[in-house]
């Protein structure tokens, strides 16, 4: 009898904790921090000025808004899933901006070498139209 009471208590406690737990999960706010901070990072590296990066930044923002709207509509799982899209787009926007910067710096470095070589080209071969030493 005592054992039955204890078992009942355990079962009730477990059921209660499950209900409380599921209620807690249902009311947990949407974690938009990851997406928001990725969007901020993309803005800070100048994604808006790089066409392809700007497009993904815009998508990330729209998806964040959509996730918030879904949350308001009670579609929490769908909202969380949408946030993944937002974060992935923001992350890609950051990478595309860095790529653009790195490539610009690479081009500038190559141009610097080209200029250095051009400015220090031996003068003997500088004037191909010269007739010195040749017959006219």
């Amino acid at each position: 009898m005592l054992l039955d009471n204890n078992r009942r208590f355990v079962v009730r406690s477990f059921s209660l904790s499950l209900i409380v737990g599921s209620l807690g999960c249902a009311s947990a706010p949407l974690h938009t921090e990851g997406s928001s901070s990725s969007i901020r990072a993309a803005e800070e590296v100048g994604a808006a000025k790089v066409p392809r990066a700007g497009l993904h930044l815009q998508l990330a923002k729209e998806e964040l808004q959509k996730a918030k709207r879904l949350e308001e509509e009670g579609e929490k799982e769908e909202a969380s899933s949408m946030l993944m899209r937002s974060e992935a787009d923001a992350e890609l926007a950051v990478a595309l901006s860095r790529d653009e910067r790195e490539r610009a710096e690479g081009r500038a470095a190559v141009e610097k070498v080209r200029q250095l070589r051009m400015n220090n080209r031996p003068s003997s071969g500088a004037n191909p139209s010269s007739n010195e030493g040749g017959t006219l």
Binding site: M84, D89, D99, E105, V110
Partner: peptide, 30 residues
């Protein structure tokens, strides 16, 4: 949504490769 994220991750890998190559090009030029 997971497929969408996967596409972005694949693009991210390509961009990461592009960044690495650009960095190498810059280092070589310097």
């Amino acid at each position: 949504d997971l497929a969408y994220v996967a596409e972005r991750k694949a693009e991210l890998a390509e961009v990461a490769a592009s960044i690495a190559l650009a960095k190498k090009s810059k280092v070589d030029a310097n």
